[in-house]
Design a binder for these strands. Structure first.
Lengths: 218, 218
DNA sequence: CAGCGCTTGGACCGTTCGGTCCACTCTCTG
DNA sequence: CAGAGAGTGGACCGAACGGTCCAAGCGCTG
């Protein structure tokens, strides 16, 4: 009964022409935007239809059901999130670079008025208990995001800037959690302050792990 | 059209007998549990009705509409969350005490199998954009929670264990964000590790703010 | 014990939802 | 230029939803 696999399901996708791809893209983009601010359950297919100027049959021509559309939205939001931070994520190799990334994340959130929180976080919160396939996709998404952070921290470690017991993977996971928690509180309070504070505290935790002629602590 | 006020609306509550109070409580408890794992939109009034063995008219006898019931759930979840941590929250006055609190939060999450994340966080994520009244309630809820953390950190500061520029309010907010982010990732990955890591990183950040050499006379 | 009001049961309603279906149009190709 | 298949429009459906309504129970007090 239960589909155990969360891996790429071999759906036989119909061939898409240029026009078809454009329409499909329009649908996913609109659905992503709507879901970002209204949630999955709060976004009806008719809403998507209205925004995109498409018909019901088009939605079901490109997606087998609503869950499939949501799956495409998950994928898209991951790409968007990573792309928006790409520059800062690529050059992560020092505390200064980490702070530039922090500023970027804060700026992005301020730009949207703290609305919607993290697109991935919102999807995770809503789908984790109801859609196993989407949950698997989100786990993968968070993991690649974390991996990008890990890569930068690892450079710092290999340079000998970190104390031995500091694991880049662990630090990156903590950093990602700080982003998610900060964005959730920012969304709730409609202020970027919680995000700034959360990131600064996590960054302070990382800095305390830096080898600068003797880290604090015993 | 738009209700600007987010303050306690003076709803004229009907007098409740003991039986009435019990029924109302049963409804709120069941709704809270259902919403915790299915979300607000994913929980229908018929679901609540089925679990509690009540009728439609009872639901609307005790609550003016679904939003009112959700409001009661928000209130209840805040009480539950604070009560579950009460012992550890009361004695917050040292890094050791913070770690006991950390262990408590982790244990609570492990106990429920990382399901549902933080009840307040889940509600916040879902209601922040759609229900201004609920959002205001959640802001208040997070604030009292944070205040409890602040109180402990302030004790540490007044004892002179903290460096001067460390603001207990700010550190507590960062800690709360770590809890929320950690719980969200724990819920998504079905593992307590992200929560542990997030809290440890935030705690490391706080510890780095402690006055070196330890408190005088201790 | 009579009456009042809190309490309960459940039929009913209009709307909205995800999803199906079929007929039609467009575009590319042989 | 004809046919095939991608692409589109929109009526339609059954189920589920939040919400209304009325009549009947139940328990306390005068």
């Amino acid at each position: 009964m239960v589909r155990m696999s969360g891996e790429a399901v071999p759906v036989a996708e119909p061939v898409l022409t240029a026009r078809g791809r454009a329409t499909r893209e329009r649908i996913v983009a609109a659905a992503a935007a709507l879901i970002h601010q209204r949630g999955v359950a709060g976004t009806s297919l008719d809403d998507v239809r209205a925004v995109t100027g498409t018909s019901k049959s088009q939605l079901y021509h490109y997606f087998s059901d609503k869950a499939a559309l949501v799956g495409a939205v998950v994928e898209r939001q991951l790409q968007q999130v990573l792309q928006a931070q790409q520059a800062e994520l690529d050059g992560l190799d020092s505390m200064a670079a980490l702070r530039r990334w922090r500023d970027r994340v804060v700026a992005l959130n301020r730009q949207v008025g703290c609305v919607g929180g993290c697109p991935l976080g919102r999807l995770a919160s809503e789908l984790a208990e109801s859609d196993p396939v989407a949950r698997a996709g989100l786990v993968g998404g968070f993991d690649t995001w974390r991996e990008r952070l890990t890569a930068g921290l690892r450079v710092m470690q290999e340079r000998g800037e970190m104390v031995g017991d500091a694991d880049p993977d662990t630090l990156a996971l903590g950093l990602l959690a700080a982003v998610q928690g900060g964005l959730l509180l920012a969304q709730t309070t409609r202020s970027v302050t919680p995000l700034e504070v959360a990131l600064d505290l996590a960054l302070a935790g990382i800095e305390s792990r830096l080898a600068r002629g003797g880290p604090p602590g015993r």
